[in-house]
Amino acid sequence: MTSVLTLAGVSKSFGAARALVDVDLEVHPHEVVAVVGDNGAGKSTLAAMLAGVHQPDSGAVLVDGEPVRLASPATARQRGIAAVFQELALCDNLDVVENLFLGHELEAGPFLDEVAMERQAWELLDQLAARVPSVRMPVSALSGGQRRTVAIARALLGDPRVVVLDEPTAALGIRQTAQVLTLVERLRSRGHSVVLISHSTADVQAVADRIVVLRLGRVNGVFDADAATSEDLLAAITGAAPAAPRTRRPGAAPVEGGPR
């Protein structure tokens, strides 16, 4: 199976700090790839790179096997990659519909097509089985889980193929965590690929197909989620175990420099 999105030997430094070193990542269609790691492992840098916020210093980003330069979030979106970050970037004073369509409102002649936007908003939220009391409620009145749902729904508007979720369950209660994890499963069954970035191994094991462990900017193991135990993951996250032999699927892109 060809991958939708590939990072091949990607490195990124901020001054002397090496955030990512020679990282390989593959995302197949219809798959949830989890990226786990300790604080400072490079998870958020990776997310920002996939979303077009940062550009790699070296290495290549490939979409459908074709090298691309994700110069900005807009370019990434055009390529079918949408991201939801920890801080969500919702406007508290606007309602759900306004937030979803902010910047690309639907128009009917000289006016905004409120009816079409509201209908699309409901359709989208229904598909996600999201429990939002009203799409005309200001976002400030929603719970943490509902706000995250709105942010994810907004990422889905252009029907992206890859959705990058950066710490979607951080700072959520158990009930909202349950809702977000169920939502990730639903994204997968709708045919999206999901890159799920998290530091909670329990959450990640619940929904991921494959788990990539980052440690100090390097890939320290790729696990099949059905076979990996939480001990395996913790050992790879903390560095107690050396890098496991990397499992590579047939058809994977050749990697510059090869495996260490």
């Binding site: 209660g173 158990i174 009930r175 965590t177 349950a178 809702q179 994890l181 169920t182 990730v184 499963e185 191994t201 329990a202 094991q205 619940a206 929904v207 989620a225 059905d226 135990t229 939480s230």
Partner: peptide
């Protein structure tokens, strides 16, 4: 009602703790 995905080979202690928290949060809601 609420559904939560669980890891393969989940453990009793983690599962029961999450269930207890979920029941308490749902009762509060």
């Amino acid at each position: 009602e609420e559904r939560m995905p669980l890891a393969p080979d989940h453990r009793a202690d983690v599962g029961l703790r999450r269930a207890a928290m979920l029941v308490e949060e749902m009762a509060a809601s």
